[in-house]
């Protein structure tokens, strides 16, 4: 290793006679080395220092990644407690009415329950994983629950899905549409005008393939 003595303790002021300090070099690096500064770009010591700074940054990230790899896996008790905590805050959303004949009776389903239903219906298609699910439209149906004459609400369901390419995408999307529609017909009184399915991702069952024995 070649240490020429004069960079020692003196790195702050001037690197390789370029007139730039270590701090200025670091700023240059953080800016993505733009706009180009010829005095730095053409100076071998500056270039070595920039590479070194860059490596130390990368190395710092690697250090954290290595810590993570070396650490024992996620503590299951901790995870269970965490999930129990968040599970208490349910994303119920709005109450969507069902028709009821007794004026003193109000029957509803939560938006959260419908989303879960839609998600499960989409997931049930082989090779499909649902991402987001949103329900738009007049969920209250304009009808006053309890009056016994809830008007049919017209809604649009939009889903994003991730697929394993086991069948043509359009076939998968159509299957999702049909399953979602039939579940909504069974468990809600909403009138579904459209089910939009957007394929956002193609995913691989990598772990599954490795596990096959």
């Amino acid at each position: 290793m070649n240490s020429d003595g004069d960079t020692d303790g003196d790195t702050d002021s001037d690197i390789g006679g370029s007139g730039y300090s270590l701090e200025q070099l670091a700023d240059y690096l953080y800016r993505g080395r733009t706009p180009p500064i010829p005095e730095i770009d053409e100076n071998a010591e500056c270039q070595a220092m920039l590479d070194s700074l860059e490596r130390l940054g990368t190395l710092s990230s690697e250090l954290v990644s290595k810590d993570a790899l070396d650490a024992p896996g996620v503590d299951e008790t901790w995870l269970a407690t965490l999930l129990a905590t968040i599970g208490r805050e349910v994303r119920a959303g709005r109450d969507i009415p069902y028709a009821a004949t007794n004026p003193n009776t109000r029957l509803t389903i939560t938006e959260g329950a419908i989303r879960e239903l839609v998600r499960a219906a989409g997931d049930s298609v082989d090779g499909v994983l649902v991402g987001t699910c949103s329900i738009e439209g007049d969920l209250d149906g304009g009808g006053d629950a309890g009056e016994g004459d809830v008007a049919e609400s017209t809604i649009t369901v939009s889903l994003t899905i991730s697929v394993v390419l086991s069948a043509p995408v359009t076939t998968l999307a159509q299957a999702v549409r049909e399953r979602v529609h039939s579940e909504l017909l069974k468990h809600t009184e909403l009138h579904v005008s459209a089910i939009n399915v957007t394929v956002v991702d193609v995913h691989m069952l990598t772990t599954a393939i490795e596990d096959e024995s």
Binding site: N102, N104, T105, L107, T108, I109, G112, A113, E116
Partner: peptide
């Protein structure tokens, strides 16, 4: 609907008639 009927049936007849019952399906 079955749940709301079961609740109403379980109440004293005196209060059953006026009781406002809300059944919310939170999960399927």
């Amino acid at each position: 609907l079955t749940v709301s009927d079961a609740i109403r049936d379980a109440l004293d007849p005196a209060v059953a008639e006026t009781a406002a019952i809300h059944v919310r399906v939170s999960r399927i």
